[in-house]
Design a protein around this nucleic acid. Structure first.
Length: 434
RNA sequence: GGAAGGAUGUCCGAGUGGUUUAAGGAAACGGUCUUGAAAACCGUCGUGCCGGCAACGGUACCGUGGGUUCGAAUCCCACUCCUUCCGCCA
């Protein structure tokens, strides 16, 4: 959530920017509720003070029952109960309005009403050329028994699949490659320097996070999108994660991190689950949009000063990883409508899919400033002993299904085989193709 | 699934109705001493919210929610989580 003080000071800008993101919020209603809340809080606190003073008087008298004082205490109690009830109602209303306000986009985020208005920031590599008609990834792997969606549909329904054989080995090669690359300080240092960033060169810590989480931290992360995206385990009041980010960004819920711990950089590997409600018909074939998929996800906790630089580092890492695989791609600066409620800035990377003759999203990088941390109450202590909310960043390293689909389509041969990118070969027994 | 014990500030930990605006210790920060460091000693040191330019004042927070009481960290009820033991199990 946003700082209410910020909203008070910037009511017009908040209204405008929220609307740009597609979240029309009634800032005037929010500020009215805020004013009413503060006024009622004043009443309540004055009554509590009276109560405390009455108690103190009784205490001074040795705690002996004094009918008059006890009677007065009872009167205060009744009055207070009424005032508190009133305050509770207003506060609940206030909080609902406050939470409805999205994070403010940074200055360089293009204003747009739909994802059509995302801006292509750069293109790297040329769309792959073939001297034959390139196939879709499923046309390559299904006949070779590396992907079985029919049986998965029988067992689990649509948007599931059995991935088999060499494709499984390819997935674990991707995992190994990412863990090795992000764990290597020389790589991080190189990317920090090449991009002129002023951040730590600390490598990423590999992490296997939980796949389920409780409602309270999930809600605080501003990532709980109950109906369309997220599965609920009703019996145990747990949600299935829709991204490793959800159990990573919540890790330090209600904690104060020592300054020297930052930045905290994690590279997580986790199976994620999405309901994909309302997407019927989209990507019915292939392995792009499943209910269940594995993902390597980066998460960074940093000081406010370095938050934006960390975001840029994550994008640089994403580009580096894609380049290492030799995939053509474009970098998209997401517009206000597409960056998401808690985001201040968002970048997508789209890889070229020759079988579909188009670029398709494979990576996202999200910068939340302190919007998530405020609700999660994740803070750090500064040198002067005061505390400040941390900044959070998350970014895809590889979503394995989509990345493998891109590798399959770009590296296909005329006879229906798949060339393995050089950097992955050491993790596949030096096999050059599958 | 059965049983028991727990949950207190950055950490450890005392606290069973008013003396707690939470003891004590550790860590951290500042200082004294020292050639330097360590030790010792002195001092500072929880987090929100409201008001205030500020100094400061008020108020809340002892797992969560409710209740009893003039007054609750402390008593009552419900719930959540953690630990240990037994059972089951990858």
């Amino acid at each position: 959530m946003l700082d209410i003080q910020f909203i008070r000071d910037n009511a017009e800008a908040v209204t405008t920017k929220a609307a740009q993101k597609g979240y029309p919020v009634d800032v005037h209603a929010l500020l009215a509720a805020d004013e009413e809340r503060r006024s009622l809080l004043g009443n309540v606190e004055a009554l509590r003070r009276k109560r405390n003073e009455n108690t103190e008087t009784i205490k001074q008298a040795g705690g002996k029952p004094d009918e008059a004082l006890i009677h007065q205490g009872k009167l205060i109690k009744m009055e207070l109960a009424q005032a508190e009830e009133q305050l509770d109602g207003v506060e609940a209303h206030f909080e609902k309005l406050l939470r409805a306000v999205p994070n403010m986009p940074l200055e360089d985020v293009p204003v747009g009403a739909t994802e059509e208005e995302n801006v292509v920031a750069k293109k790297v590599g040329e769309p792959t050329k073939f001297d034959f008609a390139p196939k879709n990834h499923w046309e390559i792997v299904e006949p070779r028994d590396m992907l079985d969606k029919a049986r998965a549909a029988k067992i689990a329904g649509s948007r599931f699949g059995y991935i088999k054989g060499d494709l499984v080995r390819l997935q674990f090669a991707l995992v190994q490659f990412v863990m090795q690359t992000l764990g290597d300080e020389t790589v991080i240092k190189k990317l920090v320097e090449e991009n002129g960033l002023n951040v730590s060169t600390k490598p990423f810590t590999p992490i296997l996070p939980p796949a389920m989480l409780r409602t309270e931290p999930y809600r605080a992360s501003a990532r709980l999108n109950a109906e369309e995206v997220t599965y609920k385990i009703e019996q145990d009041d747990l949600w299935l994660n829709a991204s490793a980010e959800h159990t990573l960004c919540t890790m330090y819920w209600k904690e104060i991190l020592p300054a020297e711990a930052l930045p905290i950089r994690y590279i997580g590997y986790l199976t994620s689950f999405r309901r994909e409600a309302g997407t019927y018909g989209k990507d019915a074939e292939g392995m792009i949009r499943w209910h269940q998929f594995d993902k390597l996800e980066m998460e960074v906790f940093s000081t406010p000063e370095t938050g934006l630089e960390e975001h840029k580092l994550l994008v640089a890492i994403q580009e580096y990883l894609v380049q290492q695989l030799g995939l053509p791609y474009q970098v998209l600066q997401k517009c206000t409508a597409d960056i998401g409620k808690p985001n201040a800035r968002g970048i997508d990377i789209e890889c070229w899919f020759p079988g579909q003759n188009t670029y398709r999203e494979t990576h996202t990088a999200d910068y939340m400033t302190d919007y998530q941390a405020r609700d999660l109450q994740t803070r750090t202590r500064k040198a002067d002993n005061t505390t400040v909310f941390v900044h959070t960043n998350d970014a895809t390293a590889f979503a394995t299904n989509r990345t493998m689909a891109a590798i399959i389509e770009n590296n296909q041969t005329a006879d229906g085989r798949i060339k393995i990118p050089e950097v992955l070969r050491p993790f596949m027994g030096n096999q050059a193709e599958i």
